[in-house]
């Protein structure tokens, strides 16, 4: 009974997203932005994509689009999923049926994960084809595997933001406050925190690296940085709070955008990035935990 209820709710939500074309608009937007970014990278490099190591290097702009546009679209998807029920007062209609709150919520989350995966499948397949067409180089098995892991990471990253939008739209008294609050958090964690992390890095204060520009020997650099221990803890702490930074670190490593990971065996690369994977998982599990733990007000009183 619980499984059939979960499927009924998920099916209804997916049909609704298809009927209102929400998912098509979301996919189209992300697809156009991603394809343009790949084409621009290819043109900027004088048609010399890929580098010697990986065709996936062309995906730097794509990662940034996923980070910013992908997370914003996921918030909208989450907001819409809850706001539709609250706005039309259909929560009470559903919750006078013999259904548990957690089954109802699981059905809605499941539907949105399916929609996010559908959207990402179209985007990832399209940009893979675009890269192959532009470069004239096919993707190796390893590159396909790296793309698949990147796909899963993107799904996880977007699910975290979906849960954020969904949670606020489900629990805040006023729906307009829900969207505003979710986007304020998005602004802090997607745009501000990663920038603070970067701009406050002492070595980033001069082009090419401050210590290198000042010809500071490495031992002295370490000594200076040790004196800035507390400062560095705060700076990296701010950076660590951002799911976008973890997503970026993981995908930059996976797709060879960060040079030091090029040529590294996949298992070794994943071990090196396990902290970022755990952070992304932690966001989803944490927000999911709050979602399933909190009692929903079904009457709107």
């Amino acid at each position: 009974m619980m499984i059939s209820q979960l499927i009924a709710i998920a099916k209804k939500d997916i049909q609704d997203a298809l009927r209102t074309r929400t998912i098509f608009i979301m996919t189209g937007f992300l697809l156009v932005a991603s394809m343009v970014s790949i084409a621009v990278t290819h043109t900027a490099m004088g048609g010399r994509l890929p580098s010697d190591y990986s065709v996936l290097e062309a995906m730097r702009g794509f990662v940034e689009h996923l980070e910013i546009i992908g997370s914003a679209l996921a918030i909208l998807l989450g907001y819409r999923s809850a706001a539709n029920e609250r706005g039309h007062n259909t929560l009470a209609l559903v919750m006078t049926r013999p259904i548990r709150q957690r089954v109802f919520l699981a059905g809605k989350v499941f539907a949105s994960v399916v929609l996010i995966c559908g959207c990402l499948t179209v985007v990832f397949v399209s940009i893979s084809v675009e890269i192959m067409v532009l470069t004239g180089v096919g993707l190796s098995t390893l590159e396909v595997a790296k793309l698949a892991i990147g796909f899963a990471s993107t799904g996880l990253y977007m699910t975290a933001f979906f849960l954020l939008g969904f949670l606020f739209a489900l629990h805040l008294k006023h729906l307009s406050h829900a969207l505003l609050t979710a986007f304020s958090i998005w602004l802090v964690f997607v745009l501000i925190a990663p920038q603070i992390g970067d701009t406050l890095d002492p070595d980033n204060q001069a082009v090419g690296g401050l210590f290198s520009q000042l010809s500071v020997p490495h031992a002295q650099e370490v000594e200076i940085m040790n004196k800035l221990g507390t400062y560095e803890v705060i700076r990296t702490g701010i950076e660590q709070l951002s799911p976008s930074k973890h997503f970026e670190r993981l995908t930059f490593a996976l797709w060879g955008i960060k040079g030091s990971y090029i040529g590294m065996p996949l298992s070794e690369l994943l071990s090196a990035k396990i902290i970022d994977i755990l952070w992304l998982l932690g966001y989803v599990l944490g927000l999911g935990g709050v979602l399933f733990k909190r009692q929903v007000n079904f009457t709107g009183d």
């Binding site: 059939s4 209820q5 009924a8 039309h88 007062n89 259909t90 009470a92 209609l93 559903v94 259904i99």
Partner: peptide, 27 residues
Amino acid sequence: GYVPENVHLYEAMTAQENLRFLGQLSG
């Protein structure tokens, strides 16, 4: 069974689709 003061149903769905969905939830 419950009918609220303002009957709230899924607007984009047909009557039959609404009944099918709610019937599935009720088993």
